[in-house]
Design a protein around this nucleic acid. Sequence first.
DNA 1: GTCTATACATAGATAGAC
DNA 2: GTCTATCTATGTATAGAC
Lengths: 241, 241
Amino acid sequence: MKAEKSDNIHGIELENFNSFKKSIKFILADIVSKLYDDNRQLIRVKKSPQSIENLKRIIHTAIRISNKKGYSVMSMRELSTVSSLSIGALYAYFPSKDELLHIIQQYGRTSVEKVLSESFIHSSSSKDKLYNFIRAHIFISEVLKDWFYFSYMETRYFTGSEYNKTIEGELLTESLIKDIIEKGIKNNEFRRDIQTSLIASISKAILQDWYLKRWKYSKRGVTPDEYARECFLILYNYIKL
Amino acid sequence: MKAEKSDNIHGIELENFNSFKKSIKFILADIVSKLYDDNRQLIRVKKSPQSIENLKRIIHTAIRISNKKGYSVMSMRELSTVSSLSIGALYAYFPSKDELLHIIQQYGRTSVEKVLSESFIHSSSSKDKLYNFIRAHIFISEVLKDWFYFSYMETRYFTGSEYNKTIEGELLTESLIKDIIEKGIKNNEFRRDIQTSLIASISKAILQDWYLKRWKYSKRGVTPDEYARECFLILYNYIKL
DNA sequence: GTCTATACATAGATAGAC
DNA sequence: GTCTATCTATGTATAGAC
């Protein structure tokens, strides 16, 4: 069983968005179940298909409401109404609004880490590595767009370790890109006279725009595949020999 | 007197950030005074050097607090304490928290429109136009970084016309860039086979990162001039013949 | 496990003294 | 013009019935 899951993770498909979506379906399916296990000391309701379903609904509803008005403005009354669970029932799934935030963040972070860390290690050239990483990032942020938006917009209100973890995530993405570019320079695949950390930073900005401006790109009918391609071309054109 | 002001606006200096900063000092100085005039039906305190000073302090304090915790979470009590004015006094400068938001947005929008609209019209080539526009945007967003950040992060909570105006601002910047590129293509200065609206969109994303990630760029000691240069080079490299 | 009713804190805004 | 005291609404969280 373990081998099967492991195979599946390594088998993330990056050819196009549709194949990607299929290949990570299995991975995302049991994220909430694992979330349940990791937080069993906080959750007063015992694990069951029904309670997992409820937790999933709470998380998605909270993200959706927060993306409209902000997490701090979302009231427990509203979360209760929209998620069709009473306030009393909600508090059986988390001990406080702050803890719900942790659970939401854990939910997204776990999913993203799995995908990104495995996305580009099997590429041969630096060019391929870069393209695969860009695709992986855009594809996973498309699938989890609500969470990505949520996490980005709420970061500044986070405190302590939650804030640090989110910033680490931001810097990790950036340093992964930087590493790819620097290795490419070392292997004589890219120009030597580029400022790698600035390029990495700008790359990250472009990747983020995809989920920060959903309304714009979806209105214009831009597909994840097109956007990934254009991102790659702009960057590659600048760094290639 | 009118001619003098007009000259000054046209005289926005884009050579480097320091000269830019000096050249728009005069423009920004009396923005709050004009703001006072435009909202005199809302403000119960009569115009004076003292009251202009108070209004300015209210605006900047509100922006500062909001950038830490969000406008909706900022309480009038806190704004009162930090700005050293009682709650009663605050409400003499604006009739409601919602109206204060309008005033803040008006403050930033007025300043930015002046600078951006005049920034690139005197350039000869499309290449120069693009570079000047990028510089103007990065320089003004450096000077007004707190407002830019505020406006970006609070947009989603805006309602009605305030929301529309902010989105218009976003799309205006983008279409200005698009126009520059398209004119360049027509004049045989740029490649014909590029997706102008996607490039414009990505350009905007890069420009925005400058004020959205202040902590990162200032920590790394990246100057506005360096960032503008790198932005331009990445884009130009992609669109040039 | 889930509900309703309620405790207690804090929000935006106003009234009236000075 | 600015202050303090206070009104009413709404927030998070809990208690106790079922």
